[in-house]
Computed example of a mutant assay.
Amino acid sequence: MTGNRKDDHVRLASEQQRQTSGYNHFDDVSFVHHALAGIDRSEVSLTTRFAGMEWPVPLYVNAMTGGSVNTGAINRELAIAAQQTGVPIATGSMSAYLKDETTADTFSVMRRENPDGFVMANINATTSAGQARRIIDLLHADALQIHLNAIQETIMPEGDRSFGSWTRNIEDIVRGVEVPVIVKEVGFGLSRETVSTLRNTGVHVADVGGRGGTNFARVENHRRPRGDYDFLDTWGQSTPACLLDTQGLGIAVLASGGVRHPLDVARALALGASAAGVSGRFLKTVLEGGAAALVAQIMDWLDQLGALMTALGAPDIEALTHRDVLIQGELRAFCADRGVDTGRLATRSGSAYAGGPDG
């Protein structure tokens, strides 16, 4: 049953990628162009550091799948691409392994094909600390992702309906494992209040996982005989909205959900993310062209991100958070309602460009 569900998720997620309209809230974020801001490409570093971790690039392959023969083959291709490009990678939810240990290879293939890379194991918020340690050991995982998906579970025909213990359980896991813990949403976003709670439980990193990418409300509704939850198709906050809503909370933040190209990566980094995660776009590439196609795409993205940082005069990821950005459209309205001051973002570089970049 679980294997069939995982295969359904891949099929429905890939269909969404073919149907994407194009616009999301990242389009409401634009950089102010300063014509004399540019630096030399040789000055730019893509290394990102956060929560005691250092990644060579601010891009990662986010959680997708595993638990069936077909999804295990997909994970192998993803892992090969991660190994060849150096990007960190996350497994899909490993709850299938906890229910059926014969699915182990569909997840552990990620470590086998990527022995020296940064690999994140993924679990749900009902997992015990002991189970979390088993999963970390299976993958020799460098970090643990805990996904939050109450809306997905609500719509999922066989989904969970008990969410009250999640916060306490996350706290137990943080205390019970020896790797950094990253808590992520699956596409409905993390609010300021949620991220504050996560910080207080000891969570090291929050991945906002906002609306704009794969829509799991729609995925699960398609699996329902009557499709009677279509009114939740637009539930949640977008990734840029979450990044703006959660600034200054004293916890490292990652951006995933609706990241379509290198400009979106730069926008996310400028709004405070330490790195940007991609699932749907990379899944589509792997399904169409395998690991080789994904390697080419990732290398293009990294080269183009470096080019953007060069033109923006940002020698490193931290410098991007001092570049002027404009917030407009629906995203600006969200910020107004949530009390987020967007005006300061448009002039935060100060006089840096009066005589050249501030470096």
Score class of each variant (00 low, 15 high):
residue 359 G to L: 10
residue 304 Q to D: 13
residue 10 V to S: 01
residue 207 D to N: 13
residue 63 A to F: 05
residue 169 N to I: 01
residue 185 E to G: 09
residue 35 A to I: 11
residue 296 A to I: 12
residue 50 F to H: 06
residue 39 I to A: 00
residue 31 F to E: 10
residue 215 N to W: 04
residue 23 Y to D: 11
residue 104 A to Y: 11
residue 219 V to Y: 04
residue 14 S to E: 08
residue 161 R to T: 11
residue 169 N to Y: 12
residue 85 T to V: 06
residue 306 G to F: 14
residue 17 Q to Y: 15
residue 276 A to L: 02
residue 356 G to F: 03
residue 201 T to D: 08
residue 198 L to K: 06
residue 272 G to E: 02
residue 135 I to P: 00
residue 164 G to D: 10
residue 191 S to Y: 02
residue 135 I to A: 12
residue 71 T to V: 06
residue 40 D to C: 06
residue 187 G to S: 15
residue 216 F to W: 06
residue 72 G to K: 09
residue 282 F to P: 05
residue 331 L to W: 01
residue 144 L to R: 07
residue 234 T to G: 15
residue 93 S to E: 03
residue 51 A to Y: 02
residue 87 V to M: 00
residue 129 A to P: 11
residue 104 A to M: 10
residue 250 G to K: 05
residue 232 L to R: 13
residue 90 A to M: 11
residue 334 F to W: 01
residue 121 A to P: 00
residue 186 V to N: 06
residue 151 I to M: 15
residue 354 A to Y: 06
residue 244 L to S: 03
residue 231 F to N: 14
residue 169 N to W: 04
residue 236 G to W: 00
residue 265 V to F: 03
residue 10 V to R: 04
residue 358 D to E: 13
residue 165 S to C: 14
residue 266 A to L: 09
residue 329 G to F: 11
residue 252 A to P: 04
residue 72 G to N: 00
residue 297 Q to F: 08
residue 278 V to E: 10
residue 307 A to I: 14
residue 250 G to F: 00
residue 42 S to K: 09
residue 289 G to S: 03
residue 265 V to I: 14
residue 177 V to N: 12
residue 354 A to H: 02
residue 196 S to T: 14
residue 112 R to W: 10
residue 194 T to M: 15
residue 349 S to M: 10
residue 237 Q to Y: 08
residue 54 E to V: 13
residue 139 L to C: 12
residue 265 V to W: 03
residue 289 G to P: 08
residue 301 W to P: 07
residue 80 I to A: 02
residue 226 R to H: 12
residue 277 G to W: 04
residue 151 I to T: 08
residue 25 H to W: 11
residue 310 T to M: 13
residue 67 G to N: 05
residue 201 T to C: 07
residue 211 R to E: 13
residue 258 G to R: 00
residue 287 L to A: 14
residue 108 S to T: 15
residue 298 I to L: 08
residue 23 Y to I: 13
residue 39 I to K: 04
residue 190 L to F: 14
residue 355 G to C: 10
residue 138 L to N: 06
residue 20 T to F: 12
residue 156 M to I: 10
residue 191 S to Q: 00
residue 278 V to L: 15
residue 101 E to N: 07
residue 316 D to A: 14
residue 151 I to F: 06
residue 157 P to G: 03
residue 65 T to P: 02
residue 139 L to S: 00
residue 89 I to D: 04
residue 212 G to K: 02
residue 226 R to Q: 10
residue 159 G to I: 01
residue 353 Y to G: 05
residue 89 I to L: 12
residue 105 D to K: 01
